[in-house]
Simulated assay, not measured.
Amino acid sequence: MVQNFLSNYSFPNGLTLKNRVVMSPMTTMASFHNGMVTSDELAYYEMRAGGPGMIITGVANVSENGKGFEGELSATTDSMIPGLTKLSKSIKQDGTKAILQIFHAGRKSSTKILRGTQPVSSSALKAVYPEDSEVPRALSENELLQIIDDFGEATRRAILAGFDGVELHGANTYLLQQFFSENSNQRLDDWGGSLEKRLKFILCVIDTVNETVKKYADKPFIVGYRLSPEEIETPGIRLKDSLYLVDKIKNEVDYIHLSIGSYKRTSLNEKDNNATLISQFAAITKGVVPLIGVGSVELPEDAENVLADGADLVAVGRELIREPHWVQKIEAGDVESIRTKLSPFDMDELAIPTVMQVYLKEAFSRVMHFTTDSNAIQNYSDSLAPMEGFEKKL
């Protein structure tokens, strides 16, 4: 049987992927306290490299006050470039392309994580979840302009470190999403209020990053954007808002990447809308910009279903934690040996960093299909998943 996800894909700027499989950006929590890359991280990526056409790293912060959790990568200073160079090289095996995901956590941080500094956001409004979220300080215009520049500088460092692109993390309730959402952005200046004004910060970041690429990249370098299609808070981002966002940026980025827990997901807010989210975004992106579909892809048929639904590329996340050689086994016709469950006793041999093992057992235990967990959730077709900001069944 022909498997379309194993065929190559070329971006308009000339960057070619050997197949359409993308390793999703996933948190390892394994960087040093200052955000420098560790040997544990390098080993984790090296084991998963060589199969997917493209690997997107776990997120790296662009500003000192943008750190969202301990063990997070940093792209804040030039001192990070040597470690980031090692990271890109660990990924770029057998033709796999390396993408650095960059972000600012905004209010999704804490004074403790920021070593005594109050978190910042578009407005001084605390997040609904978690309940112990802190009230952030509203960014001044000069401060938000500096963060926009920081995204450009992080992109420059990614170019110098040998990455093939960057992904702007505008999903999972981080700062880019905070500016776009009416739930978190209630500013009364040019950076908030109407839908168009709430989009301004995102457009400025994209513009700055694109200008940086033009200035420093001497080979094809792509810029992607990841978004969460909906928020369930009121007020909050609705599907029509995200479709509007994609329509506005589709000619300014090299790909769109959805953040959803299941590729079968339909709207969480519009119960009479039975079309999958992937198909609705594909209606806007098709023929203009590639769309990465994602969510609980475990077997070859799942990957084919994502492409059949309108996506151009398919992201595989948790399955590549469980099965680092997922692509290679499919190519070799060895599908029967693919692990779709994870034994806690196998995590060392799978090069999963020790701190990440704890994270998976605690925060992600219900989505990892642990062999020791008989109550594991099998999919997120009707709910938000932990990786999307918080878990809530509707």
Rank of each mutant, 00 (worst) to 15 (best):
A315V: 06
M36N: 12
E391P: 01
D373W: 00
S194Q: 09
A303H: 07
S259D: 05
V327G: 02
S74I: 04
K215V: 07
K108L: 12
L17R: 01
I278Q: 00
A127K: 04
L176N: 00
L188C: 05
L125H: 03
L125C: 02
T117V: 13
R318T: 07
N273I: 14
E349H: 14
G333S: 14
M26I: 15
P130Q: 06
I102E: 02
I321M: 12
L195W: 12
I292F: 12
E143N: 13
S184F: 03
D78I: 14
E233S: 11
N305L: 10
S90N: 08
D40K: 11
E153K: 14
V205H: 03
F32T: 09
S194D: 15
A158E: 09
R107K: 07
T27F: 15
D302H: 13
K219L: 01
Q186L: 10
L160Y: 10
V246L: 06
Q118F: 09
I284V: 14
V314N: 03
D382S: 13
D382L: 10
S262C: 08
A217F: 07
M368V: 09
K286Y: 13
G389W: 11
A98Y: 13
I81F: 05
E304W: 13
I249S: 02
E336I: 02
L144P: 04
T234V: 11
F370C: 00
I91W: 04
N8C: 06
S296G: 03
V120L: 04
L199F: 13
T16P: 05
V21T: 10
V367E: 08
N61G: 10
V128F: 13
S296P: 06
F221T: 01
L6E: 02
V358T: 09
S259K: 11
D190C: 14
A161L: 02
V316I: 12
R339Q: 09
S383E: 15
L87T: 00
M387G: 04
I284H: 09
N61H: 14
S121G: 14
T77I: 06
G106N: 01
K341F: 10
D309S: 13
S110N: 11
L42D: 04
K214G: 10
A315T: 00
Q118V: 13
C204G: 06
L360A: 01
T372E: 15
L100S: 02
R115G: 11
K240Q: 12
R238L: 14
P324K: 11
G293N: 04
D254C: 09
A376I: 00
F281D: 00
N185F: 08
F163A: 06
E336K: 15
V205Y: 05
Y129D: 05
N183T: 07
L245Q: 08
D373I: 03
T38L: 14
D40A: 13
S121E: 05
L239I: 08
E64I: 11
S79N: 07
A303C: 14
P300Q: 04
L360T: 05
E270T: 13
I338E: 00
N61T: 10
T16S: 12
E153C: 13
F390P: 02
L6N: 02
W326Q: 01
F390Y: 14
N183L: 07
G389S: 01
G50N: 12
S242V: 14
E143V: 07
T173L: 05
T96Q: 03
V367P: 02
K18R: 14
T340Y: 10
V120G: 02
N172P: 08
S296C: 11
Q178T: 00
